[in-house]
Design a protein around this nucleic acid. Structure first.
Length: 752
DNA sequence: CCCGTCGTTATTTTT
DNA sequence: TAACGACGGG
């Protein structure tokens, strides 16, 4: 056996050697999934004589695509010729070549969610941006589900007729601008493949092998794309873990993986259940909890590493205590043993929860980094720069045009700008939509102030375009020595020049002086990122596409040893020696509006978090938590009650009535679902009046969010008397008797 | 055009 | 609570 195959376990090897029928590899967390895919690519090229160019491997993240390409090449260099891309980058590649068939110019710009909202806002003049964002979200979902504005099933996304109209209007507008959104990168290729059999034939001939990674995160449109590329002669292999499907809210359809064997008859199924990451007690927690999900193919992870430290379940009074508990845990661990800060990750459900941890870690001088809050490409200056560059690539891009034409202020108010856009929309066909050309025509008609301003804007763009088209662009740029930004080389120099000439650089430099921000250096960073692209129109388009599709911004700040603060979602694919999952309370994780499918997804999210841990796992839950400026008394998370008590060590005071899970095999199904409904309060002699005299059973109350209700229980908590309220909406909550807020009050409404 | 104030509204986010 | 947007006054 070849050495690269000998490192595989029997199931992994079986998966690599498999050939012929469709294959579904169910790869549990930490089971060596990436190794299998990359080895498989290399194996196909090396042993099966498959032409690497006929291999298509798709993933969801650029990081995964890069890693896959790199590792496959390390085994066999010829794998470099395989097409290993994200779904979206494959779609973009496809559309640049075949988009003309449906009237799409090859120089389209890819709109991000933000641009999409802006476009939609312009179609909804009376709506707020937040309302437009909601519709934009729905449109994105519709595209994920491969639904057109005409589709009957669009009602499943939103049944209001105006949604259908807005979607149609949005599509029309996007088409006339000549750009695409993320959903189009999948949906449009499918449409082309369906409408043009000769194109479909070409692609089906080319791709003999199709591999899909993280298949549990694929959406309906992506499934359709696979179906169009697939023929009975194609070797199709998908890899994923149904238990790690956590992007339903974004259109991921877990049924894609659950029903794969039905969709592709004679599918072979291989399970990778040997886990090389975590110790057995950690996997026991993960397994018992996720086992409560109904919609899963079923899989049991075995810990190759064997036994280890028992996970700790920690009951805490509030979030401040939670933060200091985490900090102390980390400090003590570093004092005692030789571990590092980087061993530790603090996980939470929502970004807002990071604040308390940041405050505490800062106070104690514990180094940390917050993952996912970078948002480089959401910064104003970066969006400005990208909009400016977008207009140069696609002069029909009115969204980008609007953003930058009056920035810095050039005396072009919204009235003038709208006039230009109107004129462009109604220009004769040769100029239709070409904003820059229309601007030029319109100049004489404008007021002096507006004219001068617009001339300045056009001059900047024009010079930029000249340089893009000029052979010796670079040397020219360098001769126009830049004042604020350093030119660098290639496209970087050109971008620097454009930023300077347009006044954008100066505008943000001034901002920096006022607000002490880093905007100019961000712009510099953006420009630097372009250094490897040629200073041509094509190079610029490529650069913009790269940025739209890959916003990870891999800055090399990995060097400092620090604790990781991260949302559970963001931990997917990562691992840490020591993991603390925080905020495990009903209403937080899971959120209390989650039911059925959504609840199962939350449970999978919990599973993802747990399976990140290699050596140590801590689960924390707080009795009180401030959310939206209100302090709520929460029950421990349902998921905690699903963990058998002998699977964990507990710390802190277990709340009365907390019922831990029992051993799985002693539970019948009916009993199991009962356990979920079990209230947190044990039997006690009921009080009729709270000890502070504020409340009595049956008192009426009103809460802005929960409506009318009634006091149905009174207990004594560590912080004072607690009242339990049953609201007419069905919600039951407990409050401190002293809890007061303008939105919550006692009302004279005793009894019902 | 900039700034202050008021009101609204709160997940998760591979691309 | 806090952050962000919408609106009105200077």
């Amino acid at each position: 056996m070849e050495s690269y195959l000998s490192v595989l376990n029997p199931e992994q090897r079986q998966a690599v050697l498999h050939w012929g029928k469709p294959l579904l590899i169910l790869a549990g967390a930490g089971s060596g999934k990436t190794r299998v895919i990359t080895t498989k690519i290399a194996y196909l090229v090396r042993e099966r004589g498959v032409d690497p160019r006929s291999i298509l491997a798709v993933t969801f993240t650029n990081k995964a695509a890069r890693e896959m390409a790199e590792r496959a090449q390390n085994i066999d260099g010829r794998a470099a010729d395989a097409m290993i891309r994200t779904f979206h980058s494959f779609g973009a590649w496809f559309l640049r070549r075949n988009g003309a068939l449906i009237g799409l110019d090859s120089n389209f710009v890819i709109y991000d969610d933000d641009d999409t909202v802006t476009l939609l806002s312009s179609l909804m003049p009376n709506a707020t941006r937040a309302e437009a964002a909601k519709v934009a979200h729905l449109i994105a979902r519709a595209k994920d589900y491969f639904l057109t504005p005409e589709d009957n099933q669009l009602d499943l996304i939103d049944h209001r007729p105006q949604f259908r109209k807005l979607y149609a209007l949005y599509e029309e507008r996007l088409r006339s601008i000549g750009n695409v959104d993320f959903g189009d990168l999948i949906k449009k290729p499918v449409e082309i493949l369906r409408s043009f059999p000769e194109v479909k034939q070409r692609f089906q001939d080319r791709f003999q092998v199709i591999l899909v990674d993280e298949y549990q995160d694929s959406n309906v449109a992506q499934f359709e794309l696979l179906k169009e590329l697939y023929t009975p002669q194609t070797y199709l292999c998908v890899v994923g873990d149904d238990d790690q499907s956590i992007y339903r809210f974004r259109g991921a359809e877990v049924r894609n993986i659950l029903e794969f064997p039905d969709r592709f008859p004679e599918t072979d199924l291989i399970r990778l259940e040997r886990n090389y990451r975590s110790t057995a007690p950690i996997l026991a927690v993960a397994g018992t909890v996720v086992d409560n999900n109904r919609g899963r193919l079923g899989k049991t992870l075995h810990a190759e590493r064997g036994d280890g430290k028992l996970p700790t379940l920690v009951f805490l009074p509030d979030q401040e205590t939670e933060a200091s508990f985490c900090a102390e845990l980390i400090e003590k661990s570093l004092q005692k043993r030789s571990g590092t800060y980087a061993d530790w990750a603090i996980l939470y459900r929502t970004n807002a929860q990071s604040l308390t941890f940041e405050t505490e870690l800062l106070r104690r001088h514990i180094p940390y980094k917050v993952v996912g809050s970078l948002k480089f490409y959401e910064r104003e200056e970066i969006k400005d720069a990208l909009a400016l560059l977008s207009v140069m690539v696609n002069p029909r891009d009115e969204i980008a045009f609007k953003r930058v034409v009056n920035k810095p202020a050039r005396g072009l108010g919204p009235v003038t700008v709208d006039k230009i856009i109107e004129a462009a929309a109604h220009a004769d066909s040769a100029l239709r939509g070409n904003l820059l050309e229309v601007c030029r025509r319109l100049l004489p008609e404008l007021s002096k102030k507006a004219r001068t301003g617009l001339e300045g804007f056009l001059a900047g763009i024009e010079q930029g375009r000249l340089l893009l088209n000029a052979e010796a662009g670079e040397s020219k740029v360098n001769s126009i020595a830049s004042e604020r930004l350093t030119a660098g080389e290639g496209l970087s120099a050109l971008i620097v020049y454009i930023l300077e000439a347009s006044g954008i650089a100066e505008y943000h430099a001034t901002e920096d002086e006022i607000a002490g921000t880093q905007r100019l250096s961000n712009l510099q960073e953006l420009a630097n990122a372009a250094s490897l692209y040629p200073a041509t129109g094509e190079g610029l388009a490529e650069f913009l596409e790269h940025i739209e599709l890959d916003r990870s911004m891999e800055s090399g700040e990995e060097s400092t040893d620090s604790v990781t603060l991260i949302t559970v979602h963001n931990t997917k694919g990562l691992e840490f020696r020591k993991v603390i999952i925080t905020g495990l309370e009903q209403g937080v994780f899971p959120r209390d509006d989650k039911q059925d499918e959504d609840l199962e997804e939350e449970r999978r999210l919990f599973y993802v978090g747990v399976t990140r841990a290699m050596d140590e796992l801590y689960l924390t839950t707080c009795a009180l938590r401030r959310m939206y400026g209100r302090t709520n008394l929460n029950q421990p998370s349902l998921f905690l009650s699903e963990i058998p008590l002998d699977c964990v060590k507990t710390l802190g005071t277990i709340p009365r009535g907390f019922i831990p899970g029992r051993k799985r095999d002693s539970l019948g199904d009916a009993e199991k679902s009962d356990a979920h409904l079990q209230g947190p309060y044990g039997p006690r002699a009921p009080r009729t009046v709270s000890s502070d005299g504020r409340w009595r059973l049956g008192n009426g109350l009103f809460h802005d969010d929960y409506g009318y209700g009634q006091v149905v229980g009174i207990t004594e908590g560590p912080e004072g008397p607690l009242i339990e309220a049953q609201f007419e909406t069905g919600k039951r909550m407990r409050f401190l008797s002293t809890y007061q807020s303008g939105r919550f009050m006692r009302i004279e409404r005793d009894g019902y």
